[in-house]
Design a protein around this nucleic acid. Sequence first.
DNA 1: CAAAAACTTGCAACATTATTGCAAATATTG
DNA 2: CAATATTTGCAATAATGTTGCAAGTTTTTG
Lengths: 137, 137
Amino acid sequence: MNENLEILKRNGLSVTEGRKKILDLFLDNEGALAHADIEKYTDAAFDRVTVYRTLQTFVDKGIIHQIPTTDNSILYALCKHKCEAGHHHDDHVHFICNLCGKTICLDDVTVPAVKLPKGFKPAQAAMVVTGTCSDCK
Amino acid sequence: MNENLEILKRNGLSVTEGRKKILDLFLDNEGALAHADIEKYTDAAFDRVTVYRTLQTFVDKGIIHQIPTTDNSILYALCKHKCEAGHHHDDHVHFICNLCGKTICLDDVTVPAVKLPKGFKPAQAAMVVTGTCSDCK
DNA sequence: CAAAAACTTGCAACATTATTGCAAATATTG
DNA sequence: CAATATTTGCAATAATGTTGCAAGTTTTTG
């Protein structure tokens, strides 16, 4: 069984062309993708609205997660460690390369715990590191 | 001398109503502000375009910094530790409260260094923690 | 302190990005 | 394979961001 198919079924989603195709993009791509990337790669085979809705569905199901950025865009990346809906194990560091522009999930680098001031209770932590990636060094 | 005036002069910026007002918003506000917040608080006294340009100018001068988010918006916050243009000391942790929605700069909590895989060279690191803030606990 | 120079603002137009309702098409269920 | 449920694409609309330019302000300078 194809991996995309398996993921869709596991999450109780209808199997459609669009979902398979978009999921393949993530599976084939080491880095993270923005909405615009997906439209570009799928060559406008699907309506913009479909892409929005598909991404939202995947986030809801925990198939992909969002990566915070400062440039007014959202990056999406596959959750490698089989997340459940609403309960992401999205605790790894994200790396954005200043040279090639790719965003990479460093799945093996865990976001370190920080000591917060009195009264603050952490629920989740995200970390984005910029610099030069191993391909561009 | 008012603090807003002092900041503008120190950065070699013309002193205008808009800049003083927007800077005051940041000075009066513990948390971070989005473009939309500023339009709301200034009660449309200034054109949208002016707000965009003012924020951009402040970022360029290092007066405010951007905070990464996953919701397709940019948050801005004052740089407490007098940043120079293009050289931010923006190495503190940001906290977003799930209850009141505020974003707070934890100026005293430094982003910890992480060990990256071979070949990755870090330049800057950002960290966003979500949870419950000291007011909402 | 007034005129010149430099800079900032607002407007208008435009571009991009995101959201919603609904009918048609597709997928799943039994 | 028909009935049901879900998904898609289209159209319309909204929200967000950008640019050029003339008019208005601020700063500089003599």
